[in-house]
Design a protein around this nucleic acid. Structure first.
Lengths: 140, 140
DNA sequence: CCTACATCCTCTAGCGACTAGAGGTGCAAG
DNA sequence: CTTGCACCTCTAGTCGCTAGAGGATGTAGG
């Protein structure tokens, strides 16, 4: 068994070194064994776990959701309903966020298009911000 | 001149009371005059400013960007180019965020659809998270 | 005038998920 | 043996608020 250093683990999993330590500190990752010189020595399973976490984070799952997903993964005989529910909830969140960002985009476009590149007193950007009634779509 | 209390200002601007104080503390809003009993007394101009801030925050502008936008608004003879640049930068950010969320949505949908509602060892949700190679689209 | 109650005040600490930096140790190559 | 990088722990900072403690003020009713 060759020792995997934290730097190596970071490179393989795509999680940054301080973040690996952070995950250990909050108990998301079990504390690995140490070398004689007190340096962390990871197992291949830790790399998988870190990769799992990174991927879930990229998908926008919160740490607490990931914690739940990881305990599910650790016990493969459990029902998959919780995992499903977590993913579905995240999907709803993402859909809502997209809708809200689309409305935002429309408003920003109006602002930017309306900018005559002159002085501030004729600037549509400032104007729209100052007076919400100017928004073409009432979205918030 | 009738005195506008912080509660009244919050109600009129849609910014919460502690947030109004927070904005004052970071210098986004000038410190208002005080009543005999040391209570804040706002002017109508403060309400406009708070509304401006709230609107800009809803559009996702960062506090520092809003600070710049506000100084622009305070001096209407300046060129509108900075305001324009800030808005455009925000637009680009929003567009990128939308694209990334769309990719995410697609991946979450695959996960949720693939869930057979059985046990974890057959669960696509867990599986996809564990092994990124399973992603249909390589987006990150 | 007194009391009840809402609203106000300041101050500190906490949230999530890291990130940065100080100050020190381990280890491998030349 | 020294150079220099990677590692260690610990604390504090980031952003934009939010929560709570502990106390003062303002207002309406009796």
């Amino acid at each position: 068994m060759k020792k995997i250093t934290i730097g190596e683990a970071a490179r393989r999993s795509g999680v940054k070194v301080p973040t690996v330590r952070y995950y250990e500190s909050i108990g998301l990752l079990a504390a690995p064994s140490r070398s004689e010189g007190n340096q962390r020595s990871f197992e291949p399973a830790d790399i998988s776990r870190l990769t799992f976490i990174r991927h879930a984070r990229e998908l926008g799952f919160e740490i607490e959701a990931i914690r739940t997903l990881l305990t599910l993964q650790d016990d493969p005989h459990q029902s998959c309903a919780s995992a499903d529910a977590i993913a579905k909830a995240r999907l709803v969140e993402v859909e809502q966020r997209i809708r809200s960002l689309m409305a935002l985009k429309a408003e920003l476009e109006t602002m930017v298009e309306g900018c005559g590149h002159g002085r501030v007193d004729q600037c549509r950007v400032i104007e729209v911000l100052a007076d919400h009634g100017q928004c073409t779509r009432p979205h918030h």
